[in-house]
Amino acid sequence: MEFKQNIRVSGKRIALGAAALSSAVVLGFAGTASATTFGFSATSTSNKSQISGTYEYHYSGTADSNNPKGGGSNLYDGKFTSSTAKDLVAGDGVEAVLALQYDEYKDGIWARKSNVVAVANGTKTWTFSNKANVTAYACDRALNTTKLLNCKAAW
């Protein structure tokens, strides 16, 4: 009888330990990088170009707080999924562009990046890391040029 009772107690301890470990794992995952995801859509101010897709980001850490050039700010990782730039007026010499603006932390320094062409007349999916203040824009661009025109923020 003593032997069975010890087995029962050990079984209860194992079950309790397993439940505690499962809870810790679930809480650990939930407590770290909780992602924010949303769909987006915007049309350029000329109504010639449209962008759409899904944007997801999550907190990934903090820039070196001892760095006087922007340290201590939050870093974000994420992705754009099925992000599309669609030309709404065919044959007018203008293409649709999904352009980005963001802050990037690289080699200990924050740098502002603007007019970064992510998609031109097509669809792409990509990931990013160590960014902040990301904004997507619907823009027009004359064919064979680099200047973005009539841009409108999606958020």
Rank of each mutant, 00 (worst) to 15 (best):
T127V: 12
S44D: 11
T135N: 14
G28R: 00
I7V: 14
S22G: 14
T62L: 10
C139Q: 01
A118T: 01
K4I: 14
L100N: 05
A19G: 14
L27V: 06
I7T: 03
T43M: 05
T45F: 05
W126N: 12
D92E: 07
N74A: 15
A132M: 01
N6Y: 15
G78L: 05
G28N: 05
V26R: 01
L75T: 06
Y137R: 06
R112C: 00
S82C: 00
F80A: 04
N115A: 14
M1G: 15
A111M: 11
Y76H: 07
A118F: 12
V117Q: 09
E56G: 01
W155S: 12
N67L: 03
A15K: 13
S52H: 09
T54G: 03
Y102Q: 06
V89L: 11
A42T: 01
V9T: 13
G78M: 07
T43G: 09
W126F: 15
F3I: 13
T127S: 15
D77W: 11
A136K: 01
K106F: 08
I109S: 14
A42R: 01
N130W: 06
F40E: 03
T84K: 12
S82N: 15
Y105E: 01
T145V: 09
A33F: 05
V117C: 02
L98I: 04
Y59A: 10
N115K: 09
A96P: 04
S46A: 15
Y59T: 10
A20L: 15
G91P: 04
G78W: 05
W126V: 10
S73R: 11
W126G: 12
K131Y: 13
S60L: 05
S129T: 14
Q101A: 13
L27K: 00
I109F: 10
A153M: 02
A90P: 04
C139N: 04
S46P: 08
G108D: 09
G93T: 08
W155D: 13
N121F: 02
N130D: 15
C139S: 07
V94C: 02
D107Y: 07
A138F: 04
F80N: 03
T32C: 07
A154Y: 00
A15Y: 05
S73G: 11
G53N: 06
Y102C: 08
D107V: 02
A120Y: 00
R141W: 01
G91T: 04
A111T: 15
T36L: 09
N133V: 00
V116W: 09
S52F: 08
A30R: 14
S52D: 04
V134I: 15
E2W: 08
E104W: 06
S129Q: 14
S34N: 14
D77K: 09
A136N: 03
T145A: 08
T81A: 11
K12A: 15
L88H: 03
C151I: 06
F29M: 10
N133C: 01
V116T: 12
N67Y: 02
T135V: 15
N121R: 07
G108Q: 06
K124W: 04
I7F: 13
E104R: 09
